[in-house]
Design a protein around this nucleic acid. Sequence first.
DNA 1: TTGTACGCGTTATCAC
DNA 2: GTGATAACGCGTACAA
Lengths: 334, 334
Amino acid sequence: MAVTIKDIAQEASVSITTVSRVLNDRPDVNAKTRRAVLDAIEKLGYSPSSAARNLVLQKSNVIGFIVPDITNASFPELARGIVSRAKHYGYRVMFFDTQHDSAVEKEAIRLLRSKQVDGIILSFNEANQEELEKLKNERFPVVQIYRKSSTNVISTVALDNHRSAFMGTSYLIEKGHTRIAHITTGYQTQSGKERIAGYRSALESSGIAFDEALLVSGTNQAGSGYACMKALLDLGLPPTAVFVSHDIMAAGAYDAIYERGLRIPEDISILGHDNIEISRLLHPKLTTIDTHKFSLGETGVDLLIEEIAAEFPSDREVVRSTDLVERDSVRSLL
Amino acid sequence: MAVTIKDIAQEASVSITTVSRVLNDRPDVNAKTRRAVLDAIEKLGYSPSSAARNLVLQKSNVIGFIVPDITNASFPELARGIVSRAKHYGYRVMFFDTQHDSAVEKEAIRLLRSKQVDGIILSFNEANQEELEKLKNERFPVVQIYRKSSTNVISTVALDNHRSAFMGTSYLIEKGHTRIAHITTGYQTQSGKERIAGYRSALESSGIAFDEALLVSGTNQAGSGYACMKALLDLGLPPTAVFVSHDIMAAGAYDAIYERGLRIPEDISILGHDNIEISRLLHPKLTTIDTHKFSLGETGVDLLIEEIAAEFPSDREVVRSTDLVERDSVRSLL
DNA sequence: TTGTACGCGTTATCAC
DNA sequence: GTGATAACGCGTACAA
């Protein structure tokens, strides 16, 4: 059915070895011969079987990218960074949306073991660390994004969440706010825990007492942000500013605020985190913290490629800082 | 290095054929033998090489999904639909973001020819129809989403844009609007053309004269929606309602309106199209038209699988209708 | 029920 | 500069 290297060889009256040579741009082949082969390829419409190639080369040039939820707002930019950098290295990207199924590790293991992919990038995952480390020990390239490895055996590119939250909270303090709430994803999530710590640390640095009532947790979704904000507005003495740990939750918070007939930032200031696309489409435009997702994705691929090429498993940990982007949702009280 | 079927055979003291049998859940193998093989597999931590499998089976169980821009707001849901349905058929999905590079067709052709993927789903693409049809003629499975094939040789799942725009515009008319503008992506895009036609058709049906000045075109981005809206607001007699062909442009339109100190929907009504995630996060929540993207993706996979299994190239065209979802951005003038 | 041997389409080694 | 030929790891007639 399909045309193979053998057909080309026959058509061009050469051996398959020669065909393979021109296919791989080897210099040691006569110009005339090359021409003939190229013509045959063109004529028969041939293209090499990647399956055969992968088999003999023991390499697929595909990297797997596993996310728990492809609809996560941070996904697109991160994915673009990964795809773009992967392309640069001659790799393709295969996506896996686990839908939080947590069969993540099984899928990952199967993929790697079967050589379907040469390496894997994990993001936002709650995967079993043990399994991953086992994989790692078998010399399978794995890189985590966003999530630090507790035992530091897996290469990681993460955010400096503590510093980021510290910076955000400090910004609100600089603007004259003292009653500052924090909407978080809670102590169960790593980023939540770290950002809470940064938030508290900033308060303390300025001599502001931490108020348990101003810390409310939910999940990384608009609806949850809405609920959290409502809880805060129901307080006897609501905050004048809220640091929301994810922009998508901030969008939900907007809803709750508008529902009460309040204004942003006149009545209450909102500071987000992540800087996703919708942040600048909200009204007023959301002041937030950019996480450089595209670049994070690129770095993830860099680490993975390094891992793939390396003799021995590396375990580099890259921690990236974030940047505040001022827009219109925070009011200065000064 | 890696453990192969041969190692398992040796370990279990059987032939590779037998191992292959248990691997593929063949019934014709003794229970005891199977146990032994399974044990060996477990012990050695074996998993079959997909490269070898693909080569002998002439099949990868991967489908390619090509989009011009992964950050398009309609992408996530569509992708989820595709991934979900593909998984159901035992397929994986490989994403390709062409960044409008329009080397799309070359990439697609290479992929298919090289058997890296068993079929391809194209979305939002401006790819060369001729190339695609050539592919199709060579019995390569290709399905288009959103874009109808002019010559009807490629299977397609598309939207009934005309009907959709007709419905949307009629809705505004029912609400008492007569001065209705349309922000569009223009006559160059297929969906733009069809939606313009639907819009005009609805106006005519109600005896409202089409006003050239109320039709303003841009690109499918927030910034462009902003610019288009500004142009409309600069009109001597601005519209009372605007039908925006894409929600992301509507989000930009909101900006322009707020910038002028106007209110939605009190001063001007906005009707979107697409129902992307941010639509319900805007304030006021955007009334729009849902395109059932998840389902579209599922159907795309259905068609592709059919195509892959089929003896002869099919060329089915599925046209899906849309649904209006009423929220808060349209005011009744009655 | 089990095993032998060949083929899938490439690349790589070694001759010529 | 070019050509046999042996892998790569698996599925599958065909035989036993």
